[in-house]
Amino acid sequence: MSIADYWRLEAPRFRLEATKCTNCDKIYFPPKRVCPICNNDELIHMDLSGRGRLITFTKVEKPAVEFEYMGPYYVGIVELEEGIRISASIVDVAEEQIKEGMPLELAFRKYYAIGDEGIVYYGYKFRPPL
């Protein structure tokens, strides 16, 4: 990540801002600038609900260098209410609690920091509903 691309993606990363084609109504997350079905560039912004369910998951035991500081951790595929499937970390869940089909909701968490003096990156993760 660089600060420029982090900045560019803050809306989708912070609050699941998707784009929706004004022609075919298809919702894109990650957001697209152009609907490739309609070739339409007039897409509107909309925040997704942040509610969904867990499709599948695993535990990352050997994270890449950026996420080494917090391993091991769970990741999974989440199907949102809008029917969109996204990958995410699953947090605040115990080994005996995590299971396919469980409801999840949007959480705001830290991804990782660049050293002691660099930027800290934040964005969505998912957790069992409060």
């Binding site: 990540m1 691309d5 993606l9 990363r13 990650p30 990352v60 050997k62 994270p63 890449a64 950026e66 996420f67 951790y73 990741v75 996204i86 990958s87 995410a88 970390s89 991804y111 990156y121 964005g123 969505y124 993760k125």
Partner: peptide
């Protein structure tokens, strides 16, 4: 890169 690796998937 942006929607998987950047956010912790491997």
């Amino acid at each position: 890169s942006r929607w998987e690796a950047d956010i912790g998937l491997t």
